[in-house]
Design a protein around this nucleic acid. Structure first.
Lengths: 207, 207
DNA sequence: CCGTTGATGTCATCAGGTGACATCACCTTA
DNA sequence: TAAGGTGATGTCACCTGATGACATCAACGG
């Protein structure tokens, strides 16, 4: 172990000479390494130690940043929940229940809809693995529950709140998938969501 | 190990004298043992070896019956999917998309709605543990996907099919939770589902 | 009576995950 | 400037979930 090993480069030493004690941004490096490896080899074939190596840390450090091997793809969802909830709370008091939910989804689309390529990669990995689909679903369910609580604080009855946010979640899932799948570069996520809401309306009023 | 150990009783030997080679119904014993222990100590606190002991088998046998520690609570869902799908396919050609979905949910309610006490126990365990909630959600998502495929086979466009079954799934989840939570012994699951469908209709037609 | 069969046990091994403690450079403060 | 605190990390030990390979044993069919 010569002093030359002190590089901070990938998979080597972890110190850096002048700036800070450790190469900063271990969390980001881990996120990036994980997505890359999950895409290249698949989720099950990738071991936590591999991800950690590629990010220049140990497996123990991985688990200090992320609760488990899946969470590395999902820990941004806390932000998403915050801004969706904020948008719901910012909706005018005159808004209908579903309009408030739509405002929340629109805020989510603002964040997610920026980078379709990233969304595609993430979605490809997630949809290819049951473990990751499970995590994705519970994150959306938790978001839905948070929004439902927000609705209740606005005076919406519990049953109505739960149904509205679950339906909103369904709309979002379908729209997101359509947005990711389409070749059409002009379709943005907001528009896809709007269309799905319209379709839900049509569905529930058949005659 | 005297011959007297050959009893087939819980946590002891596994042979039985006359009937079959092994005490039959290992799967059922494991299911029951798991639910009991998950209720008593919680899911994380229960080890597979504990469940296996209580059922009179080894942990290796547990994993021959169930893919993982969670699946022991969910492997009946294959049946559920079959009968829901059958009901959807049996719906008259004149039925609307949502009516076909409602028929499928009704078939599901026929199975689940029989034993509210069992449903309550199961739900209590599942809702108390993130791992189990994840599994529950993916099972419902898979059911929804299967129904959507059934709708597409009936000629329903893909986007409409996905949205209808996801919305139906939302209706089911909300109704089921309400049915489990209520004290009212006269409310049955079918009725709860009917009410949630009605509420969804109200929600989407605000004026 | 014997070979096959199927459910099970035993053993070994790996990957995910966690607690306890050591380390090391930076930072604060006297 | 020396002493001690701090925070991110490494190291080690250990548990549990999960899986592959192989042995066992009673029933069953010929």
């Amino acid at each position: 172990m010569s002093p030359d090993d002190i590089t901070g480069g990938r998979g080597r030493r972890h110190y850096t000479r002048g700036v800070g004690r450790w190469e900063p941004g271990a969390g980001d490096r881990l996120r990036e390494a994980a997505l890359t490896l999950y895409l290249e080899r698949g989720f099950e074939q990738t071991m936590v130690a591999d991800i950690a190596d590629r990010a220049g840390v140990t497996a123990r450090t991985f688990f200090r940043y992320f609760a488990d091997k899946r969470e590395v793809l999902f820990d941004r969802s806390a932000e998403l929940e915050r801004s969706a909830l904020a948008a719901l709370e910012a909706a005018p008091a005159t808004a209908s229940t579903l309009e408030a939910v739509a405002a929340a989804l629109s805020a989510a689309a603002d964040l997610i809809g920026q980078d379709r390529e990233l969304a595609r990669k993430r979605q490809a990995v997630i949809m290819s693995t049951a473990d990751l689909r499970e995590r994705e679903l519970i994150k959306l369910a938790d978001l839905s529950a948070a929004l439902a609580e927000g609705l209740r604080r606005r005076g919406v009855p519990a049953a109505e709140a739960a149904l509205a946010t679950e339906a909103g979640s369904a709309v979002y899932r379908v729209a997101f998938q359509r947005w990711v799948d389409t070749e059409d570069g002009t379709l943005d996520l907001h528009e896809a969501i709007r269309q799905s809401f319209a379709q839900l309306h049509t569905l529930t009023t058949p005659h």
